[in-house]
């Protein structure tokens, strides 16, 4: 009798706790927009860079991809860009590709920024779909994608030169 009561109560409470737990979990994920899972394939995308070349992420299989989301008005993005450029020079012959995706600004703003900072890796403008697919909210954010096309790591916020180097080392095929 007593045991039965305990079991019934436990089951009812457990079912409700599960439902509440799921709701909170789903809600948190919705807020964070966590669309990227570490260890899982990175969402594919196609963008055209400032020179008119088409880049499709899935075509970089076999190389590590250092995927950086940025904007010209974002100060930390501006500060980390030279470090990425420097390290790109070191790693580009070792199979590491840098792709920088601007957050929907005008070509003018992006081109002037490239002139000023002297970036040589492909820079492209995304009007929103790619950022949505990656669940981008604050900038800058960097994703490391290995040669199999899986996301190894994501980093939100400014990078220093050492970290950029470590990151590229990590995805070197």
């Amino acid at each position: 009798m007593k045991k039965k009561r305990l079991i019934t109560r436990t089951i009812i409470l457990a079912v409700m706790a599960l439902a509440v737990g799921y709701t909170l979990y789903a809600n948190m994920n919705k807020d964070k927009n966590q669309k990227i899972v570490i260890g899982k394939p990175a969402p594919d995308f196609v963008l055209v860079d400032m020179e008119g070349n088409k880049h499709r992420l899935s075509e970089y299989k076999g190389q590590g991809v250092f995927l950086n989301f940025w904007a010209t008005w974002c100060k930390p993005c501006e500060r980390e860009m030279p470090y990425i450029e420097n390290q790109y020079q070191q790693f580009k012959d070792q199979g590491v590709q840098v792709l920088a995706i601007d957050s929907g600004e005008s070509e003018l703003a992006v081109n002037r920024f490239i002139e000023r900072k002297g970036m040589t890796f492909p820079v492209m403008i995304d009007e929103g779909p790619v950022q949505a697919a990656y669940g981008i909210n604050p900038l800058p954010i960097t994703f490391l994608i290995d040669k199999e096309g899986n996301v190894v790591r994501s980093h939100t916020g400014e990078l220093d030169e050492k970290t950029v180097r470590d990151f590229m080392e990590q995805i070197k095929p």
């Binding site: 409700m16 439902a19 509440v20 709701t23 909170l24 809600n27 919705k30 807020d31």
Partner: peptide, 19 residues
Amino acid sequence: YSSWWYLLLIAALGISLVI
């Protein structure tokens, strides 16, 4: 309305209703 504490309050009310 999507904060965790608000949802917890709603959930607590639901549990209270059932029990």
